[in-house]
Design a protein around this nucleic acid. Sequence first.
DNA 1: TGCAAACCATAAC
DNA 2: GTTATGGTTTGCA
Length: 203
Amino acid sequence: MKLIEVYTQLFNGIWFAIAINNQYVEASSFGKNQQTAIINVLINIPFELPFQIFHEPTITAKQALMHLKCIYDGKDVESNLSLATARLPTYTKKVLKATSSIPVGYVTSYGLIAKAVGGGPRAVGNIMASNPFAPIVPCHRVVRSDLSLGGYGLGLEAKMELLKREKRGFTSSREITINSASLAVFPVEHVLRNFTTNFLGKS
DNA sequence: TGCAAACCATAAC
DNA sequence: GTTATGGTTTGCA
């Protein structure tokens, strides 16, 4: 059995980590320090699989890590990384796929995803909470139905930071299509406005 | 606003 | 099989 390779890299004060298994990304994460980035990746790789942590990323690993950084920066990059989703439950795959199709600059809610793919809001929330592929699968673009932030595994501050960088100036909501179902998405600005009125300018 | 109840796939026993 | 667990939502006072 092949070893899962774990790599880390520091970009602009943020540590990024990725676990690679035979070209497939098993898990990815980021954090303020190297240790938490590594831990967040390790908790998402299957318990029975052996892994090794490398100090110097290979060329391909470095490219993958750079890709993470681009996403973190809010750039609209298309992912050429293959995610190891094979062993995940069918429903989980459906939810992650739906989440992946939320465009940069928009957000949607747990409940609306549930309506689009079936199931309930809390089930969707649970899957977001255990998303192994942050920020590749943009679970930070999923918020509460009232457009308040909701939660985030890597900290609400990080969720906020990501969303701020994804502002595109969109003003109206739109619909995207997921397997013949439609999903409404809203400009990320709505969340940010909501956030400031809730926490700063309440009067 | 705030609280209670319904919601639903997973993981853990 | 059963239970516990939420990054939720909705209705009602």
